[in-house]
Structures are given as C-alpha cells and as structure tokens.
C-alpha cells in the first residue's frame, strides 16, 4: 500500500489534524525512578552478576585484567579467541582469530554497565563485531568501574543525547543465553554463550 494512503487511514480513524504531538512527560516520575535506582552501584552490580551466574574477576588495572584473561584462557585451554583489535594484546595463550564463528572465547569492551540488572552495554561497530559476544560458547567483558550506571534508563538517556552517534547495533547483555522452553527447566547456552565472565577494573 502507498505510504500516504496508509498514514491517511490511521489519521482519519484517529480524527487527528496531523499536528505534531506534544512529547509526553518524563516517564515514570523521577521519584519512582530514583527509588528503583541503586544506592551503591558497584556493590549492586557485583551482587547482580552473582545472581546471573556470571563469573566476576575484580582487578586493579587494565594490565591486571590482561594477565587475568590470559590465565583463564590458559586454564580453560581455549585455542581460539576473537576480539576487536584494541583488545588483541600480544602474548595471549592460544590464537586470535578474525571469525567469531571459529572462536571458543570472545572478548568485548563494555561501553557502560547497569547496576540494577547486572547488564553490560555493548556498542557493536567497526571492529567490535556483534559476533564477538554472541558466537563463542564463552564470553568475556571488560568493565571499567566508572562506567557503571544505576539502571537501564540512564544508558537510554545517554544514547538519546547523541542520536548521530548511535551504532547500527547496541546490545544489552545480562548473563548467559538461556531458555526454559523445555518443561520449564532453565538451561544455559541455547544460541549464545553458556558462560559469561566480567573483569571489573577498579582503576578506570
């Protein structure tokens, strides 16, 4: 159907003049939102990760994070890891691979994290591929402590403030891929990673 006719049908049914609407007031009220927001974001974030069965490595610096990632890769015997170029430091046990589908482990940098839900927010753009945090069976995220926001709306407002900077894909990831579609029993690793690791960097 031609778009003009499609829109006209809706407009006629609504008996609207076609004037632009006045945008709605902030939702919900700021009071309700603050009640839901975390008082101590870092502690809350760590608590939520535990509930989501995410393995947390608190580290003091980026360098410490690198050593910790290397130790885990070695311990697990992962032969292939994918990550954007900025995270591909030399000396990692196993090999860096370009194709996410061939990797056993994927590493990504969180743009933000959300305390209330234990969420990491990922900008998938350029070398930071969507597949890095999706195709390997194990997934790791680097999260700078200063990047922890209270809740979802705080990230949405930041995205809304810079619409021209919105990448083609933003992912909000909270724990492992899971389902309860078979007789209501929770199972992890349906399509995405079954294991999730977070390196929480205190110095950043």
């Amino acid at each position: 159907m031609r778009r003009a006719a499609f829109l006209e049908r809706i407009r006629a049914q609504l008996r609207r003049s076609g004037d632009p609407p006045v945008p709605p007031a902030p939702h919900p009220s700021p009071e309700a939102r603050s009640r839901a927001a975390a008082d101590a974001p870092v502690a809350r974030f760590r608590e939520r990760l535990k509930e989501l069965e995410v393995t947390l490595f608190p580290v003091a610096s980026r360098e410490a994070a690198r050593r910790s990632v290397g130790a885990l890769v070695e311990e697990r015997g992962w032969a292939t890891t994918c990550a954007p170029a900025s995270l591909r430091w030399p000396g990692l046990p196993g090999a860096w691979v370009d194709e996410s589908r061939e990797a056993q482990f994927g590493l990504a940098e969180a743009r933000w994290a959300l305390a209330e839900t234990g969420t990491v927010v990922l900008d998938n753009r350029g070398e930071a591929a969507r597949g890095h945090s999706l195709l390997p069976a194990a997934s790791g995220f680097l999260v700078a402590e200063s990047r922890i926001l209270p809740r979802l709306g705080d990230a949405l407002r930041r995205l809304a403030a810079a619409p021209d900077d919105l990448p083609a894909c933003v992912s909000f990831v909270s724990g492992p891929s899971n389902t309860a579609d078979i007789s209501g029993v929770r199972c992890v690793g349906v399509h995405g990673p079954a294991e999730v690791f977070v390196w929480l960097i205190a110095g950043e």
Binding site: R48, E116, T117, G118, T119, R125, L152, L159, L166, P167, A168, C169, V170, S171, F172, V173, S174, G175, P176, S177, N178, G192
Partner: peptide
C-alpha cells in the same frame, strides 16, 4: 529483572 539480551538495531550494518 531483565532478559539476557536486549538488542537495539538502527539500520543495516554501517
């Protein structure tokens, strides 16, 4: 509290 994934897609790949 939240699902494992919320994905926000804005256009095809850039």
């Amino acid at each position: 509290r939240i699902t494992s994934y919320i994905t926000a897609i804005t256009g095809p790949r850039r």
